[in-house]
Design a protein around this nucleic acid. Sequence first.
DNA 1: GATAAAATGTTAGGGTGCTAACAATTTAAA
DNA 2: TTTAAATTGTTAGCACCCTAACATTTTATC
Lengths: 150, 150
Amino acid sequence: MQNKNHTENPHIGFELRRAANLIRREIDNAMSGRKIEKLTGMQGRVIGFLCHNLGKEIFQRDIETEFSIRRSTATAMLQTMEKHGLIERQPVEYDARLKRIAPTPVALERHKIFEYEINRVEASVLNGITKDEADTLLKILEKIRNNLGE
Amino acid sequence: MQNKNHTENPHIGFELRRAANLIRREIDNAMSGRKIEKLTGMQGRVIGFLCHNLGKEIFQRDIETEFSIRRSTATAMLQTMEKHGLIERQPVEYDARLKRIAPTPVALERHKIFEYEINRVEASVLNGITKDEADTLLKILEKIRNNLGE
DNA sequence: GATAAAATGTTAGGGTGCTAACAATTTAAA
DNA sequence: TTTAAATTGTTAGCACCCTAACATTTTATC
């Protein structure tokens, strides 16, 4: 309509979120192209984490620290995943507060596809960005986390 | 509990979101320290955008493109902001589809505090990160956006 | 052993994202 | 000009993220 000269100074937090949102869209979109019921980005990450630690006992608190999310966020997410048959939560003998979390066979199946698709998306996202730049990016993100007491 | 050796390869999209979430927490926290009713990070950005364009007509579609969000996301957010008395939405004479969006005096007041707090948070987030690194970060994020057709 | 503190998980309520399906209006094309 | 297409906004339903307030269980402290 009028001269679209209205962009303000960039704020780091917002720009990070914007890029993250666009990437999430892309992942969701890639997964939706499959016949199989999809995993969301976060669900895929959680299943990946569980797969990566199949021998070990994983509890909700481990998910919280691994993904830097709050307790209530983890509760809601894991409840949803359990409802969808992606994980099982079993009580633990030696501590009544804990619940052991394990992926179901269905989840393992879907996770294979997730891994394939996320790598595809990752590659297209990083198109024209050097390995060095990507490493720098991750290093800066780590610094930011440290600055915020992670 | 056991050796916490279970971190996987980093995925760019997830790491961006994690950092963005931590920063949002920090902003919310800073705003909560104030006596006044707070603005959320996104609300602060929207009001800032409106302030920056006070002479021009701004419609919902402009918010969508400015912030790279979907129509329905913008609808919900602006409804909430209207409900909270942060913006007004008025019909436009020459096009019955559009709604003119303007900030209220209350919003302008809160936005001053928001600006102050977000700059403080921004500074603490970027502690130990050089101007060059920050510029590189923003440049990479822009490349990512371009790669995803923004 | 009793009491206080810490750890783990849940619930309630709200903000910010998305897709898909709609309704209404305006613009383009036949 | 009438029909088709594009534009703008809404609704419904869901994922993900938060704080605050709770309940329960375990661990520390006295």
